[in-house]
Nucleic acid binder design. Sequence first.
DNA 1: TACGTCTAGTGGACAAGTCTACTAGACGTA
DNA 2: TACGTCTAGTAGACTTGTCCACTAGACGTA
Lengths: 175, 175
Amino acid sequence: MILSNVILGMLAVAPMTGYDLKKRFDTTVAHFWSADKAQIYRTLARLVADDLAVVMTVRQDGLPDRQEHHITDTGRTALAEWLLSAPDPYRERDPFLARVFFSGTLEPDDILALLWARRLAAQSMLDELVSQLGPSVTPVSKNREEYMRSATLRNGISHVRAELEWLEAVEEGLQ
Amino acid sequence: MILSNVILGMLAVAPMTGYDLKKRFDTTVAHFWSADKAQIYRTLARLVADDLAVVMTVRQDGLPDRQEHHITDTGRTALAEWLLSAPDPYRERDPFLARVFFSGTLEPDDILALLWARRLAAQSMLDELVSQLGPSVTPVSKNREEYMRSATLRNGISHVRAELEWLEAVEEGLQ
DNA sequence: TACGTCTAGTGGACAAGTCTACTAGACGTA
DNA sequence: TACGTCTAGTAGACTTGTCCACTAGACGTA
């Protein structure tokens, strides 16, 4: 499962609660993965059952206890194995393309509206990715970990730009 | 559900059996959607239960009976509603980016191997998409339906090209 | 003749992902 | 004072998607 590996990857950086993880999924890794709360907690339970993580309950005053999940040595091994394992198949599922595929029977105006809505979504996604990347001039390979993390953002940006260019070409062809 | 709408879209072109649909999912629409056999048959059953399709059993000699599924008027209405409904959120789940995000702790050679494997996959995907599109010089808007269908292929091609360019840039940055 | 493939479909288990509702104290604001 | 939000987590139903096994006749090939 990919989710459990992503969680292991986060725990490898710092011990976290399910709550902490959920926040990461909604922010720093949102551009390539998402996860429901219930799913996160279930997966954490399985990591513990498989000895890939251990829980430490931390008392806090004024706040609920934290169930801190720490990665184990077995966990780190599993993470490294995943990173080096055979690549996942190059497959995509794109609900938008599904609509486009069958949109040929619609009125031309409706097709344009479909494309226009997509353009808006893509543009706002682009803005968000760019702002997440920050103004940093492609941080040099001084810090390799940060370089790879920001590479995933640049990947998203490249794809959104490709989408916008494609939209323009399709619209033009429709005229 | 998107799958049921994709199936409706196919049935709108011609009546089909689950078997026929499975072949389409493995070929013409494979670049944006896929579906398991069991899933297709289950979904067909639900379309019939919801009066979006009806079954006609066609005897054949020498071959098993065909359970031909025909779209109903209600089905056509549902399909059109879906095509015009609010756009799906722009979200992506990318297992490869998940690896890249956590790959910063690997040895440089292992990172390059990860990127290289991706490049191979992307390149062969590109070849496949290009050959599927055929040599046709972007068919004019004489046939709008065909234009929209081929647009989805061109979308895939744009994205794969963006991926290849990104890979080059990341590799270069790693040197 | 035996095996493999194509046609067409059924059945069941299971994994992954989504959604909604609930507890409960601390804190902030209208 | 009442409501909303943040913190942290639990519980359960449900939908989607994947995998594997099985039936069964027709046809082709080694």
